[in-house]
């Protein structure tokens, strides 16, 4: 599916005040949000505190106004989040008046369900999957709304808007339901759940332009700031908070950086940037020569890294 990214174009003769804006991607995403609320009994919006999930929250607000968002938000907390993201999350939830569920990867580690990775590339990114699947079971969620986009990565380019997962959270990429026109089939069996991706058809630039146009607040780490960092494999890592493993010969230097994604600190590299306002970020992205996930070490593990994680139940 489904671009219903179709057909909307503002007539030039009528002022913008008589009709809503013509952002086809936004109208499509709102349509999807409403299908989720209508077709499922216990939906949840997976909220990471990143720009994509913040965009989802705004779209959900728009879809149901003047009613509140009719589902809770859930954050799978790796314990390695940027502190700025957590502060931001709590403030947003309070403003919205919606329920926030937090489940911690640390608990899964303490319960012996997963084992913490060690070494130079240790990350809790993979461990999130177990915590997420447990939470889905605990709350009997039948639909999980996520901010994944098809332009992020090759395997995601084949993801459906309604993507069915089995009892084990697994993605069967060879047996996906066709999505025709904008009809979304949310029929599932007990124990299955659907991952829903309302901004599937957005690109990174679309998301940033939307944040700019809507004047949406986002965590400060997306903007250029001074940070103690070190270099590894040509990427810039945060040397603050002690989360990222740093060898003794990896020298700490202060750089002006910002983050393009705010995943787990242990797998999210920074980029050198002076973009300290949303306008500057948008023009930087427009001119950018490195794709967004280029700064995510978890995808570089192998050519098929993302596809393997998805089969195991990753977001």
């Amino acid at each position: 599916m489904s671009t219903f990214a179709e057909e909307i174009k503002e007539p030039k003769t009528i002022t913008s005040a008589t009709r809503p804006n013509a952002n086809a991607l936004e109208h499509e995403a709102i349509y999807i949000m409403r299908e989720v609320a209508a077709q499922f009994e216990r939906p949840v919006l997976l909220f990471s505190g990143g720009k994509d999930s913040i965009t989802l929250v705004r779209l959900a607000q728009k879809a149901f106004w003047p009613a509140k968002i009719p589902f809770p938000l859930m954050h799978i907390d790796t314990g390695h989040n940027f502190p700025e993201t957590i502060e931001f999350r709590d403030k947003l939830v309070e403003e919205l008046g919606v329920e926030l569920i937090v489940r911690n990867v640390q608990d899964s580690i303490d319960q012996g369900k997963v084992v913490e990775e060690t070494g130079k590339y240790a990350s809790r990114n993979m461990l999130q999957t177990t915590t997420l699947l447990d939470a889905i079971e605990e709350f009997k969620f039948d639909a999980c709304i996520g901010g994944a986009r098809r332009d992020e990565e090759k395997a995601r380019a084949k993801e459906r808007i309604f993507s069915v997962r089995d009892d084990f959270g697994q993605w069967d990429e060879k047996n996906q339901r066709p999505e025709l026109f904008d009809m979304l089939n949310g029929q599932i069996e007990m124990g299955q759940n659907v991952r829903v991706f309302p901004i599937s058809n957005w690109t990174e630039l679309d998301v940033w332009s939307y944040i700019q146009k809507e004047n949406i607040e986002i965590p400060s780490i997306y903007f250029a700031h001074k940070r103690n960092t070190f270099l590894r494999d040509g990427l810039i890592w945060s040397a603050e908070d002690g989360v990222v493993f740093r060898a003794e010969d990896e020298k700490v230097e202060e750089r002006i950086v910002r983050f393009r994604t705010v995943g787990d600190m242990s797998c999210t590299a920074a980029v050198e940037s002076y973009a300290d306002t949303i306008d500057k970020v948008v023009s930087e992205i427009r001119d950018s020569k490195i794709s967004e996930r280029g700064a995510r070490i978890d995808d570089k593990r192998s050519e098929a890294a993302m596809e393997k994680r998805k089969q195991q139940g990753y977001f």
Binding site: F4, E7, A17, T18, P20, H27, K62, A63
Partner: peptide, 13 residues
């Protein structure tokens, strides 16, 4: 969203 409009064009939610 929270704004009233005169017309809903094709493909608008």
């Amino acid at each position: 969203y929270d704004t009233e409009y005169q017309t809903a064009p094709r493909r608008s939610s």
